[in-house]
Amino acid sequence: MDASLPAHMRPDRSFQGLLLALQRYWADYGCVILQPYDMEVGAGTFHPGTTLRALGPRPWNAAYVQPSRRPKDGRYGENPNRLQHYYQFQVILKPSPPNLQELYLKSLAAIGIDSAIHDIRFVEDDWESPTLGAWGLGWECWCDGMEVSQFTYFQQVAGVECAPVAGELTYGLERLACYLQGVDRIMDLNFNGREGAEKVTYKEVFFQAEQEYSRHNFEHADTAMLFEQFKMAEAACKKYLDAGWKDEKREAHLMALPAYDQCIKASHVFNLLDARGVISVTERQSYIFRVRELAKACGEAWVHTEAGGAA
């Protein structure tokens, strides 16, 4: 950890300090520091900066914070460690550098996790996203028995083989911050690192939102509208994908990103419907399949674009 940091910026005292320390560390490494994607997503992986950029031969190193929405995980702000909205810090490095594990361990050191007194472990975890048509091998990274990150070597994304393979790191920021700050409830986190009257807690920032969104996600979200939105997003995605081919040869695609937005949209709408409990077990599989088909079609289009292609 950088000893010159003022107290309110230290990752073990400030939630935003943690986030900034990680950004700084990966910026120093040479990553593009992106901002969160401006749509609702279930995880940092959905950001096109990961999903699409992981495909194709071009090198790509990026890091960003992504607010992630899991409508089903809402607990009206009452559960100490479950939220329907939380932050992930996401790093994607393509091709995966040979010293990725060392880079990761140094990032932990940068936020104050000293490997001389903490027990850091790489525990098998095969990652799979059925909605994204993606899988990879890697680990859950444990610090003193707590999972603090996911570490994955992408093998396939959006149905396309990764060539070269990208390494993905995902830090669960709230959980990590709880550990660093020594608090048991996310809501008790010190957000801005100040003390006394200047201190802002996580609760002050997000408690009301958790309550309101839980109400929305579980009780009031308009399911008729959502079913309609799912269909519309699905149709739009297909339409844009069709329209995006430069010509009949279907060798170059010009609209993969807008199409992919619709895939993200469909995925989030599905998550909301799922939280509302209006999707049966069998239907659930078919919805996941439909989103995956969109994701795969977007991946296919992306590798025919300039950023995703060999050209």
Partner: peptide, 12 residues
């Protein structure tokens, strides 16, 4: 279960 990694994984 096995995997590929790094720059060499660009090649079949």
């Amino acid at each position: 279960k096995s995997m590929r990694w790094g720059a060499r994984s660009a090649k079949p």
